[in-house]
């Protein structure tokens, strides 16, 4: 019971973080038509910038400043990089984002070294919020939930309730018509890219200290975020939300539940002794399988629903 409650809570926290990443990625996909392989690198930049800024002036200014700096960096990358490469088609664009991911990786290693930095949860939030069945739930996790939900409410309100949001929606789905109506679509794209990377940066600010801040954090989370947007359906915010929550919760559960596949069959009354065939597989624990579950889901989705849960186009 304790395990279920805490896995669920942690799963929601992780799922919200995944959504914060995939929301930006999927919006950027809608405009570029290709996946931005450097997206998780902006998550990493967010964490490192937050670490650096909070060393100097504390966590709270970092919470605001780091995503802004990441967003400005993203905007510049779009304006002076992607926009030029875009003219030459999708493949160069894809290669550009690959290169960018490596570049950011090297930048981080050069600046802060190969091992991680001690980016910590701020003291004021470093206490157990409540204790259930003898286990503590950290207040910082609740803070992450608050920030994420606040962010999504704001994003949703901007996209659906403001003129700017309408222009963004129109430019993403019908760029040619939006342009002939007098809207500066390239500029809209730059803001979308800046906004999406700022969201990734924010995820880094609140995720870097809850998990880890090191040069491999981008690659680690990046692949899962790709799975989320593909499973959710490329370009669909709702799909990304559902997929992020499902993958967040499933992943957390499978890490937490330390039961073997064999014991599951044992429950069903099957006796799998050490001499039965595929013995190695039966002794695999769910924890061993956890890292592959997102990819398993990806393969299943691609087989049974190639456009993703809520997607409109084939992936």
């Amino acid at each position: 019971m304790e395990l279920v409650v805490f896995s669920l809570l942690n799963g929601i926290v992780f799922g919200l973080l995944l959504f914060m990443m995939s929301a930006g990625l999927t919006l950027i996909f809608s405009m570029m038509g290709v996946l931005n392989f450097a997206h998780a690198s902006f998550y990493m930049l967010g964490a490192y910038f937050a670490f650096q800024i909070s060393q100097a002036v504390g966590f709270w200014p970092a919470l605001v400043l780091a995503p802004l700096v990441v967003g400005v960096a993203g905007g510049l990358v779009e304006r002076y990089g992607l926009r030029r490469v875009h003219k030459h088609g999708h493949v160069p664009e894809l290669l550009f984002t690959f290169g960018l991911a490596f570049l950011i990786q090297e930048f981080v290693v050069l600046g802060w070294g190969r091992v991680g930095v001690p980016y910590r949860v701020p003291e004021i939030l470093n206490f157990p919020l409540f204790t259930l069945f003898g286990t503590n739930f950290p207040a910082y996790r609740a803070f992450m939930v608050l920030i994420s939900i606040g962010m999504f409410v704001a994003l949703f309100a901007i996209l659906t309730r403001t003129r700017v949001g309408l222009i963004v929606q129109a430019s993403l789905t019908h760029p040619h018509i939006a342009a002939t109506l007098g809207h500066n679509v390239p500029r809209v794209f730059m803001y979308v890219f800046a906004g999406g990377t700022a969201l990734a940066g924010l995820a880094g600010v609140i995720g870097g200290n809850a998990f880890v801040t090191n040069p491999s954090m981008a690659a680690l989370l990046g692949t899962i975020v790709f799975v989320v947007v593909i499973v959710g359906g490329l370009g669909s915010l709702t799909g990304a939300f559902i997929a992020a929550m499902v993958i967040g919760i499933v992943q957390t559960f499978s890490v937490a539940l330390d039961v073997s596949v064999g014991s599951f069959f044992g429950l069903l009354g099957l006796d799998l002794s050490s001499n039965s065939i595929f013995y190695e597989y039966w002794t695999l624990t769910l924890t061993d399988i956890a890292p592959v579950t997102p990819y398993l889901l990806l393969v299943l989705i691609l087989i049974f629903r190639p456009m993703g849960l809520m997607g409109k186009r084939e992936t």
Binding site: H176, A179, T180, L181, G182, H183, N184, V185
Partner: peptide
């Protein structure tokens, strides 16, 4: 000129 400039 670009489309949005012409529209303006």
């Amino acid at each position: 000129l670009k489309a949005h400039e012409i529209a303006h």
